[in-house]
Simulated assay, not measured.
Amino acid sequence: MTPSDASGAATPGPSEDRWSNLERPPLNAAALQRALVTGEGLWSSVEVVTATGSTNTDLAARAGELPEGAVLVAEEQTAGRGRLDRSWVAPARSGLFFSVLLKPGGAVPQERWGWLTLLAGVAVTTGLSRGAGVDTALKWPNDLLVNVGGSERKTGGILAERVADGVVLGIGLNVSLTAEELPVPEAGSLLLAKAAVTDREPLLKAVLRSLEQWYGDWRAAGGDPAASGLQEAYATHCATLGRHVRAELPGGRTLTGTAEAVDTDGRLVVRTAEDAHEAVGAGDVVHLRSVH
Protein backbone atom coordinates (compact mmCIF):
# COMPACT_ATOMS: atom_id res chain seq x y z
CA MET A 1 0.00 0.00 0.00
CA THR A 2 1.14 3.55 -0.59
CA PRO A 3 0.59 6.35 1.87
CA SER A 4 -1.89 9.20 1.42
CA ASP A 5 -3.91 9.39 -1.77
CA ALA A 6 -1.04 8.59 -4.08
CA SER A 7 -0.77 5.70 -6.45
CA GLY A 8 1.28 4.85 -9.47
CA ALA A 9 4.17 2.92 -7.97
CA ALA A 10 5.47 0.30 -10.36
CA THR A 11 4.17 -3.04 -9.19
CA PRO A 12 5.20 -6.54 -10.16
CA GLY A 13 2.38 -8.52 -11.70
CA PRO A 14 0.61 -11.14 -9.59
CA SER A 15 1.90 -13.88 -11.89
CA GLU A 16 5.58 -13.09 -11.19
CA ASP A 17 7.70 -15.71 -9.49
CA ARG A 18 7.10 -15.28 -5.78
CA TRP A 19 10.76 -16.02 -5.10
CA SER A 20 12.10 -13.51 -7.63
CA ASN A 21 13.08 -11.07 -4.85
CA LEU A 22 14.81 -12.99 -2.08
CA GLU A 23 15.13 -9.80 0.00
CA ARG A 24 11.33 -9.85 0.20
CA PRO A 25 10.47 -13.47 1.00
CA PRO A 26 6.83 -14.57 1.16
CA LEU A 27 5.04 -14.88 4.47
CA ASN A 28 4.83 -18.33 6.04
CA ALA A 29 1.09 -18.84 6.42
CA ALA A 30 1.41 -22.05 8.42
CA ALA A 31 3.76 -20.44 10.93
CA LEU A 32 1.47 -17.44 11.33
CA GLN A 33 -1.52 -19.73 11.87
CA ARG A 34 0.34 -21.71 14.56
CA ALA A 35 1.49 -18.57 16.35
CA LEU A 36 -1.75 -16.61 16.29
CA VAL A 37 -4.63 -19.09 16.24
CA THR A 38 -4.43 -20.60 19.71
CA GLY A 39 -8.09 -21.41 20.31
CA GLU A 40 -8.12 -19.13 23.34
CA GLY A 41 -7.53 -15.72 21.81
CA LEU A 42 -9.29 -13.48 19.31
CA TRP A 43 -7.81 -14.77 16.07
CA SER A 44 -9.77 -17.63 14.52
CA SER A 45 -7.95 -18.02 11.18
CA VAL A 46 -5.06 -16.51 9.22
CA GLU A 47 -5.17 -16.78 5.44
CA VAL A 48 -2.39 -15.51 3.17
CA VAL A 49 -3.03 -14.99 -0.55
CA THR A 50 -0.48 -14.21 -3.24
CA ALA A 51 -2.45 -11.32 -4.71
CA THR A 52 -5.91 -9.82 -4.60
CA GLY A 53 -7.68 -6.61 -5.43
CA SER A 54 -8.52 -5.62 -1.86
CA THR A 55 -8.41 -7.64 1.34
CA ASN A 56 -11.20 -5.48 2.76
CA THR A 57 -13.48 -6.23 -0.19
CA ASP A 58 -12.73 -9.95 -0.02
CA LEU A 59 -13.22 -10.26 3.73
CA ALA A 60 -16.38 -8.15 3.73
CA ALA A 61 -17.90 -10.44 1.09
CA ARG A 62 -17.37 -13.44 3.39
CA ALA A 63 -18.14 -11.74 6.70
CA GLY A 64 -21.46 -13.53 7.17
CA GLU A 65 -19.90 -16.99 6.96
CA LEU A 66 -16.74 -16.33 8.97
CA PRO A 67 -16.34 -16.12 12.74
CA GLU A 68 -14.91 -13.09 14.47
CA GLY A 69 -11.14 -12.95 14.33
CA ALA A 70 -10.65 -13.99 10.70
CA VAL A 71 -7.50 -12.45 9.22
CA LEU A 72 -6.81 -12.09 5.49
CA VAL A 73 -3.33 -11.08 4.35
CA ALA A 74 -2.25 -10.31 0.78
CA GLU A 75 1.31 -10.35 -0.47
CA GLU A 76 0.18 -7.86 -3.10
CA GLN A 77 -2.94 -5.73 -3.54
CA THR A 78 -3.89 -4.51 -6.99
CA ALA A 79 -6.90 -2.41 -5.99
CA GLY A 80 -6.22 -1.46 -2.39
CA ARG A 81 -8.29 1.41 -1.04
CA GLY A 82 -7.77 4.12 1.51
CA ARG A 83 -10.22 6.66 2.87
CA LEU A 84 -12.43 8.51 0.38
CA ASP A 85 -11.88 5.72 -2.17
CA ARG A 86 -8.25 6.66 -2.74
CA SER A 87 -6.07 4.02 -4.34
CA TRP A 88 -3.32 2.26 -2.44
CA VAL A 89 -0.74 0.24 -4.41
CA ALA A 90 2.76 -1.03 -3.63
CA PRO A 91 5.25 -3.62 -4.88
CA ALA A 92 4.58 -7.21 -3.91
CA ARG A 93 5.79 -8.22 -0.43
CA SER A 94 7.01 -4.67 0.29
CA GLY A 95 4.59 -4.17 3.18
CA LEU A 96 1.81 -5.58 5.31
CA PHE A 97 -1.59 -5.49 3.65
CA PHE A 98 -4.27 -7.21 5.70
CA SER A 99 -7.82 -7.06 7.01
CA VAL A 100 -9.45 -8.45 10.14
CA LEU A 101 -13.07 -9.20 10.95
CA LEU A 102 -14.38 -7.94 14.29
CA LYS A 103 -17.86 -8.53 15.68
CA PRO A 104 -18.33 -6.51 18.89
CA GLY A 105 -21.98 -7.63 19.01
CA GLY A 106 -24.08 -6.66 21.99
CA ALA A 107 -21.01 -6.08 24.17
CA VAL A 108 -20.46 -2.68 22.56
CA PRO A 109 -23.20 -0.25 21.46
CA GLN A 110 -22.97 0.42 17.73
CA GLU A 111 -22.55 4.14 18.29
CA ARG A 112 -19.13 3.34 19.75
CA TRP A 113 -17.96 1.18 16.86
CA GLY A 114 -16.48 4.27 15.21
CA TRP A 115 -13.67 4.02 17.75
CA LEU A 116 -12.38 0.87 16.04
CA THR A 117 -10.44 2.93 13.48
CA LEU A 118 -8.70 4.86 16.25
CA LEU A 119 -8.20 1.66 18.26
CA ALA A 120 -6.44 0.06 15.30
CA GLY A 121 -4.15 3.08 15.05
CA VAL A 122 -3.16 2.79 18.71
CA ALA A 123 -2.63 -0.96 18.30
CA VAL A 124 -0.36 -0.50 15.29
CA THR A 125 1.75 2.21 16.92
CA THR A 126 2.22 0.26 20.15
CA GLY A 127 2.81 -2.99 18.27
CA LEU A 128 5.46 -1.44 16.03
CA SER A 129 7.18 0.23 18.96
CA ARG A 130 7.74 -3.21 20.47
CA GLY A 131 8.14 -5.23 17.27
CA ALA A 132 10.08 -2.88 15.00
CA GLY A 133 11.91 -0.65 17.43
CA VAL A 134 10.65 2.47 15.66
CA ASP A 135 8.59 5.39 16.88
CA THR A 136 5.35 5.94 15.01
CA ALA A 137 2.65 8.54 15.47
CA LEU A 138 -0.95 9.02 14.37
CA LYS A 139 -2.42 11.73 12.20
CA TRP A 140 -6.12 11.99 12.97
CA PRO A 141 -8.00 9.88 12.27
CA ASN A 142 -6.21 6.98 10.60
CA ASP A 143 -2.78 7.80 9.16
CA LEU A 144 0.43 6.21 10.49
CA LEU A 145 3.46 8.49 10.54
CA VAL A 146 7.20 7.88 10.86
CA ASN A 147 10.20 10.18 10.91
CA VAL A 148 12.43 10.00 7.84
CA GLY A 149 15.43 12.30 7.96
CA GLY A 150 13.65 14.73 10.24
CA SER A 151 10.56 14.81 8.05
CA GLU A 152 7.12 13.52 9.03
CA ARG A 153 6.12 10.86 6.49
CA LYS A 154 3.02 8.73 6.12
CA THR A 155 3.86 5.03 6.11
CA GLY A 156 0.43 3.46 6.49
CA GLY A 157 -3.27 3.82 6.98
CA ILE A 158 -6.39 2.17 8.29
CA LEU A 159 -9.80 1.70 6.69
CA ALA A 160 -12.87 0.51 8.62
CA GLU A 161 -15.96 -0.74 6.80
CA ARG A 162 -19.25 -1.85 8.34
CA VAL A 163 -20.58 -5.27 7.41
CA ALA A 164 -23.85 -6.95 8.39
CA ASP A 165 -22.87 -7.92 11.92
CA GLY A 166 -19.50 -6.32 12.46
CA VAL A 167 -16.61 -4.29 11.09
CA VAL A 168 -13.80 -5.14 8.69
CA LEU A 169 -10.60 -3.29 9.55
CA GLY A 170 -8.04 -2.93 6.79
CA ILE A 171 -4.46 -2.02 7.66
CA GLY A 172 -1.72 -1.17 5.21
CA LEU A 173 1.87 -0.53 6.21
CA ASN A 174 4.88 0.23 4.04
CA VAL A 175 7.72 -1.89 5.38
CA SER A 176 10.62 -2.21 2.92
CA LEU A 177 9.83 0.39 0.26
CA THR A 178 12.96 2.20 -0.89
CA ALA A 179 13.12 5.91 -1.70
CA GLU A 180 12.98 5.07 -5.41
CA GLU A 181 9.76 3.07 -4.94
CA LEU A 182 7.84 5.76 -3.07
CA PRO A 183 5.01 7.18 -5.18
CA VAL A 184 5.17 10.67 -3.64
CA PRO A 185 7.85 12.55 -1.66
CA GLU A 186 5.73 12.66 1.51
CA ALA A 187 5.52 8.87 1.68
CA GLY A 188 7.66 6.78 4.02
CA SER A 189 8.42 3.24 5.10
CA LEU A 190 9.79 1.45 8.13
CA LEU A 191 13.01 0.82 6.22
CA LEU A 192 13.51 4.52 5.54
CA ALA A 193 12.69 5.29 9.19
CA LYS A 194 15.59 2.99 10.16
CA ALA A 195 13.44 0.42 11.95
CA ALA A 196 15.42 -2.22 13.80
CA VAL A 197 13.22 -4.96 12.31
CA THR A 198 11.75 -5.11 8.80
CA ASP A 199 10.97 -8.84 8.73
CA ARG A 200 7.24 -8.85 8.03
CA GLU A 201 6.31 -11.99 9.98
CA PRO A 202 7.31 -10.77 13.45
CA LEU A 203 5.88 -7.35 12.62
CA LEU A 204 2.52 -8.83 11.65
CA LYS A 205 2.43 -10.94 14.80
CA ALA A 206 3.32 -7.92 16.96
CA VAL A 207 0.58 -5.77 15.41
CA LEU A 208 -2.09 -8.48 15.64
CA ARG A 209 -1.24 -9.27 19.25
CA SER A 210 -1.40 -5.58 20.10
CA LEU A 211 -4.74 -5.29 18.31
CA GLU A 212 -6.06 -8.30 20.22
CA GLN A 213 -5.11 -6.71 23.53
CA TRP A 214 -6.58 -3.27 22.81
CA TYR A 215 -9.75 -4.71 21.32
CA GLY A 216 -10.23 -7.01 24.30
CA ASP A 217 -9.84 -4.16 26.79
CA TRP A 218 -12.18 -1.89 24.81
CA ARG A 219 -14.80 -4.61 24.41
CA ALA A 220 -14.62 -5.50 28.11
CA ALA A 221 -15.28 -1.85 28.93
CA GLY A 222 -18.39 -1.84 26.74
CA GLY A 223 -16.59 0.28 24.16
CA ASP A 224 -16.04 3.11 26.63
CA PRO A 225 -12.93 4.89 25.28
CA ALA A 226 -12.06 6.46 28.63
CA ALA A 227 -12.57 3.40 30.84
CA SER A 228 -10.57 1.19 28.45
CA GLY A 229 -7.67 3.66 28.32
CA LEU A 230 -8.10 4.04 24.57
CA GLN A 231 -8.92 7.75 24.52
CA GLU A 232 -5.85 8.63 26.58
CA ALA A 233 -3.59 6.34 24.55
CA TYR A 234 -4.81 7.83 21.27
CA ALA A 235 -4.13 11.35 22.53
CA THR A 236 -0.64 10.29 23.62
CA HIS A 237 0.23 8.95 20.16
CA CYS A 238 -1.61 11.58 18.10
CA ALA A 239 0.72 14.00 16.31
CA THR A 240 -2.24 16.15 15.28
CA LEU A 241 -2.96 17.45 18.77
CA GLY A 242 -1.34 20.79 19.51
CA ARG A 243 -0.88 21.50 15.82
CA HIS A 244 -2.30 24.28 13.70
CA VAL A 245 -4.49 22.44 11.18
CA ARG A 246 -6.75 22.93 8.22
CA ALA A 247 -9.75 20.64 8.08
CA GLU A 248 -11.34 20.18 4.68
CA LEU A 249 -14.89 19.21 5.53
CA PRO A 250 -17.68 17.53 3.54
CA GLY A 251 -19.58 20.06 1.46
CA GLY A 252 -16.47 22.04 0.60
CA ARG A 253 -16.19 23.96 3.88
CA THR A 254 -12.75 24.58 5.35
CA LEU A 255 -11.94 25.02 9.04
CA THR A 256 -8.60 26.21 10.41
CA GLY A 257 -7.44 26.35 14.00
CA THR A 258 -5.61 24.47 16.71
CA ALA A 259 -6.33 20.76 17.23
CA GLU A 260 -6.89 20.55 20.99
CA ALA A 261 -8.46 17.19 21.81
CA VAL A 262 -10.16 14.01 20.67
CA ASP A 263 -13.61 13.82 22.26
CA THR A 264 -15.48 10.78 23.56
CA ASP A 265 -16.94 10.19 20.08
CA GLY A 266 -13.50 10.13 18.48
CA ARG A 267 -13.96 13.53 16.85
CA LEU A 268 -11.14 16.05 16.56
CA VAL A 269 -11.87 19.21 18.55
CA VAL A 270 -10.51 22.32 16.81
CA ARG A 271 -10.27 25.76 18.42
CA THR A 272 -10.68 28.49 15.83
CA ALA A 273 -9.18 31.97 15.78
CA GLU A 274 -12.50 33.24 17.19
CA ASP A 275 -11.93 30.95 20.22
CA ALA A 276 -14.85 28.73 19.23
CA HIS A 277 -14.56 24.96 19.49
CA GLU A 278 -15.78 22.70 16.70
CA ALA A 279 -15.75 18.90 16.65
CA VAL A 280 -14.70 17.42 13.31
CA GLY A 281 -16.07 13.94 12.65
CA ALA A 282 -15.15 13.55 8.99
CA GLY A 283 -12.88 15.20 6.48
CA ASP A 284 -9.23 15.66 5.60
CA VAL A 285 -6.95 17.27 8.16
CA VAL A 286 -3.70 18.93 7.09
CA HIS A 287 -0.92 19.68 9.58
CA LEU A 288 0.15 23.28 9.03
CA ARG A 289 2.65 23.96 11.82
CA SER A 290 3.35 23.28 15.48
CA VAL A 291 1.81 25.57 18.07
CA HIS A 292 4.20 26.80 20.76
Rank of each mutant, 00 (worst) to 15 (best):
S7I: 02
G8V: 13
T11A: 12
D17M: 03
S20C: 08
P25M: 00
P25C: 05
P26R: 13
A29W: 05
L36Q: 11
T38C: 12
G39I: 05
E47P: 07
V48S: 12
T52F: 03
G53V: 12
Q77S: 02
T78G: 11
G80P: 06
S99T: 04
K103G: 04
A107G: 13
E111T: 01
W113F: 00
W115D: 00
V124C: 09
T125N: 08
G127R: 00
R130L: 00
A132W: 03
V134P: 11
V134R: 13
D135F: 14
T136W: 07
A137T: 13
K139I: 08
W140M: 08
N142V: 09
L144P: 01
V146T: 11
G150E: 14
A160F: 06
E161S: 14
V168R: 01
L169N: 03
I171Q: 04
N174T: 11
E181Y: 04
P183Q: 13
P185N: 08
E186Y: 09
L190E: 05
A193D: 14
L204R: 04
L208I: 13
L208V: 14
R209Y: 03
Q213G: 09
A220W: 02
A220E: 15
A221C: 15
G222N: 13
H237D: 05
G242F: 04
T258S: 00
L268W: 03
V269W: 01
V270N: 02
V270M: 00
T272Q: 03
A276M: 03
A276K: 09
G281E: 07
H287Q: 04
H287P: 11
H287G: 02
R289V: 10
